[in-house]
């Protein structure tokens, strides 16, 4: 779409464009297409939850869906943290649902309306970094709050031989500190790569149809299109898996902070 005639830039979909200028304390906090999609995610999540608030004794379909998701997050926390994990359900649920719906929102076919294109909030490093910091910060706060300086014993696993005491804590510390980066990068890279791949394949389809030689659409466009259907389904799976991985790792890290191994 962007760029010179006929060229499809697979990176254009990640472009942030200001929709309304806004400056607070010298910072440019303009309302952008990214902000718009965050608001859409909030609206969709609120609508989803609102539909499950009937609180019937025998749940309907919608209430069943909402209760299924909350029960899923609840189970994840109680199985990885234990009964104390109930306290962290709101946080993990918010992370999981925000990432899940943001991922799906980026897959919505809004592009059929001319001039509109979907934006994947979670394909931005700034967003995933903040989410990872929220997850990691919770672990740090809970860990030091509950155990004080004893939290550092996390870096000395049980049964470490004395002659490895100089090495193991170093490795443990490193693996602990790398968690926020792996959390942020995993989600960012998975979403970006998937969307680039889909856009490149879509470019093959369109450029093939526009080609002058008659054999090109048959050889390029149709196989690309068929492949794209599969890739799209795979991407939908990745959307759910990435949200699940983020939530699961967060609950495992919270388990470290609560139970110290």
């Amino acid at each position: 779409m962007a760029g010179e005639s006929g060229k499809i830039d697979p990176m254009y979909q990640f472009q942030i464009e200001p929709l309304a200028q806004l400056d607070i304390a010298g910072y440019d906090v303009s309302f952008t297409n990214s902000s718009l999609f965050m608001i859409l995610v909030l609206g969709a999540l609120w609508l989803f939850m609102w539909g499950g608030m009937k609180r019937d004794l025998v749940p309907g379909r919608w209430q069943m869906a909402v209760e299924g998701v909350t029960g899923f997050v609840n189970n994840m926390l109680t199985s990885s943290v234990g009964p104390e994990g109930k306290k962290y359900v709101p946080l993990v649920f918010s992370l999981f649902m925000f990432i899940l719906i943001a991922n799906f929102m980026g897959m919505m076919p809004f592009g059929i309306v001319p001039g509109v294109h979907p934006f994947t909030v979670t394909s931005h490093l700034t967003i995933t970094a903040v989410l990872a910091v929220i997850s990691f910060g919770t672990v740090l706060i809970v860990g030091f709050w509950k155990h004080g300086l004893h939290f550092f014993s996390l870096f000395v696993p049980h049964g470490t031989p004395w002659w490895l005491l100089w090495l193991i804590p170093l490795i443990e510390l490193f693996s602990f500190l790398i968690r926020p980066f792996s959390l942020a990068l995993r989600l960012f890279v998975a979403m970006t790569a998937g969307h680039v791949l889909m856009k490149v394949l879509a470019g093959f389809v369109i450029n093939g149809l526009n080609a002058e030689a008659a054999w090109v659409p048959l050889v390029v466009s149709i196989p690309s299109f068929i492949l794209m259907i599969g890739i799209t389904l795979l991407e939908l799976l990745v959307c759910a898996i990435q949200a699940y991985v983020f939530a699961l790792l967060t609950s495992l890290y919270i388990n470290d902070a609560v139970n110290l191994h």
Binding site: D28, V29, F31, W46, M49, P90, L91, F98, T126
Partner: peptide
């Protein structure tokens, strides 16, 4: 864009965490 991204994400995530995570989720 980082300032705008942080700003809007904190607003949206804060709303999700407090109104949905702490408001609607416990009722469900």
């Amino acid at each position: 864009t980082y300032a705008s991204q942080f700003f809007w994400l904190l607003i949206v995530f804060g709303l999700i965490y407090f109104t949905i995570g702490h408001g609607m989720l416990p009722k469900i």
